[in-house]
Write a protein that binds this DNA or RNA. Sequence first.
DNA 1: CTGTGAACTTGATCCATGTCAATACGGGTC
DNA 2: GACCCGTATTGACATGGATCAAGTTCACAG
Lengths: 249, 249
Amino acid sequence: MHGSRKVVNITRLRQACRTCTLMELCLPMGLTSDDIQALESIVHVKGPLDRGAHLYREGDAFQAIYAVRHGALKTYSIDADGREHVLGFHLPGELLGLDAIYPRYNRCSSVALASSSVCVLPFSQLAELAQKVAGLQATILRLMSKDLSMSANLATDHTAEERLAGFLLSLAQRTGAGTELQLAMPRRDIASYLRLATETVSRLLARFQQEGLLEVHRKQVRLLDLDGLRELGGSFEMMDRRRQRTGFV
Amino acid sequence: MHGSRKVVNITRLRQACRTCTLMELCLPMGLTSDDIQALESIVHVKGPLDRGAHLYREGDAFQAIYAVRHGALKTYSIDADGREHVLGFHLPGELLGLDAIYPRYNRCSSVALASSSVCVLPFSQLAELAQKVAGLQATILRLMSKDLSMSANLATDHTAEERLAGFLLSLAQRTGAGTELQLAMPRRDIASYLRLATETVSRLLARFQQEGLLEVHRKQVRLLDLDGLRELGGSFEMMDRRRQRTGFV
DNA sequence: CTGTGAACTTGATCCATGTCAATACGGGTC
DNA sequence: GACCCGTATTGACATGGATCAAGTTCACAG
């Protein structure tokens, strides 16, 4: 764990947003080439983060927000009784750490679910730049607004069935991989995120499979009947048409 | 409904943020006098909205965000089965409509729970101004970040007991009225927001009263044992010390 | 003061989901 | 290929909260 540091730590690389396949999902979205150049000058890449490595921890002073480049991360907090609660999953192109702006320290921890890398966006510099670049300010506001919509979505679904179906649809959309899902997170994390027992997730997946809605084997999921799933968990459906991914990181 | 229009419609008043008792909670927070003057020039007051009057409806094009001046509003959406889901309550000093920035139309409706008035902040002008006034951009980002934290809080509590206790603590803090709460919303709305049955809310309030945690009579609630309530629903506790209200609208 | 309807409370019952307990699988390593 | 251990599945049972069904209280109108 110590000796591997030298190998792992390829941080502080400059990031070329202009050639990043995630450009259409991420902050540079809609910016001019000049604006993106300015953005690149304050961004650097961090990673790869091994599975289990933390990006930040609850209580850390707020310094930066992050954009996922590849891999997957989860955010979680530990409650008074020591139980872990998963607050969200973060896939390539998505921002991370926005909830720390207000309290000025992180109220949750963030850990890699698989080997991952992120773009680090030092917040004070980012805010300063957004002051000059209207399109950047607009993009940040829009992405934060999207996160607000997403949490409202989770809130609307109530039964276990609805939440799991909605979660799978949401994942399918966010990964852009069509109907073929590779779950980056263990059942326990899905359950925690949806506030269900691990066993319930397992049983529901089995039932969905019996009903012909999907095929599941461990972390491999193939969605067979999208309409059927939508009937169960419709509200998770997101509104973003641009999210159709074209490339892969 | 039609004839009363003339009386109700005292909209388009200019708002003097500088003398508003909510200044410390709302957008002008931390701005210079000049900046606030610029803000005032784009803000106008709308109201009073009678109980049941809508501020905006699901599907409306996104034009403005709103700051509650007095009263209380709820946001809700109607699902595919026609059931209403309460997404949030909005008290004086709080912003409303931020979730519509991203999709550019409102994904939920907003209705007054009691006679209310709001400041209307036309978004394009607000964004333009935030471009010039760094403190305003910072304030907007911070308030949006706070909303993200709040939704994470709701997500963390699981049992009915925890959610209701947390909700009451949150309300007490947000109203700043100490331990004396006047619930603006009916039980049905509390239940919908916390994803419980109305009867469960009623029973839990009765139980909390039996246990000496609070006194409740219809919409009047007096919190007697804050520590006891915190033990049940601790995670709702907010981090904002400035939220201690000094005045009243 | 009395009537009316909506909001709330209380009680009885049921069921979805949590909990506890085995068991099975599969990816690593040697 | 065989062992190992964390992850996932499956089963049996317990229970919190939903649902159904009366009542009760209160705000308000007349």
